[in-house]
Design a binder for these strands. Structure first.
Length: 154
DNA sequence: GCCAACGTTGGC
DNA sequence: GCCAACGTTGGC
């Protein structure tokens, strides 16, 4: 199956693209939205991801990551007292999943949400039409467009 | 801090 | 199954 493209949001105060660069890779824990979870379960190793900073100044696309481990249960949901604990997640039938992503590139300049919104080629992008989902599918053409806007050669 | 646009929960 | 109340996301 062909490579797929995604967009994942993170608040830079929590885990920024710089954190990802420094650590190399990370597990994407804490997703507690079914649609976002379903998207993560559809990811394959090698899929590419637009790294997006939400609640940032300005919000926007800041780099590229790559899926390096396919979906597996988010064990934080089972740890009582943990911030991502969910009493309704059954250890025998985990409700929440996460993937691992690795650093690929950081854009020289953030492509801000305002810029993304004003680009006619991205008018259909899920981010523009419905902004709140933290893990979204992105079309190949949209992925390429965002990279081009960022001046990213990778 | 505000608030729009959702999603979730739970009573009925 | 409906819907009110509540919680969350995230731009501004």
């Amino acid at each position: 199956m062909a490579k797929q493209y995604w967009l994942m949001k993170s608040e830079p105060d929590v885990f920024s693209i710089d954190d990802l660069r420094r650590e190399g890779s990370t597990c994407w824990e804490g997703v507690r939205n079914y649609q976002a979870r379903n998207n993560m379960r559809d990811m394959k190793v090698g899929d590419e991801v637009i790294y997006y900073h939400s609640n940032a100044k300005p919000p926007g696309a800041v780099g590229i990551a790559r899926v390096c481990k396919k979906a597996y249960p988010d064990h934080f949901a089972l740890q009582k007292g943990h911030k991502y604990f969910d009493a309704k997640s059954d250890p025998d039938n985990p409700r929440w999943f996460m993937v691992d992503v690795e650093f690929v590139a950081e854009f020289d300049e953030c492509v801000g949400l305002a810029e993304l919104k004003s680009d006619p080629e991205l008018a259909d992008m899920e981010l523009i039409r419905y902004g709140r989902l933290s893990v979204q599918a992105v079309k190949k053409s949209e992925f390429g467009r965002v990279k081009k806007m960022a001046g990213c050669k990778k």
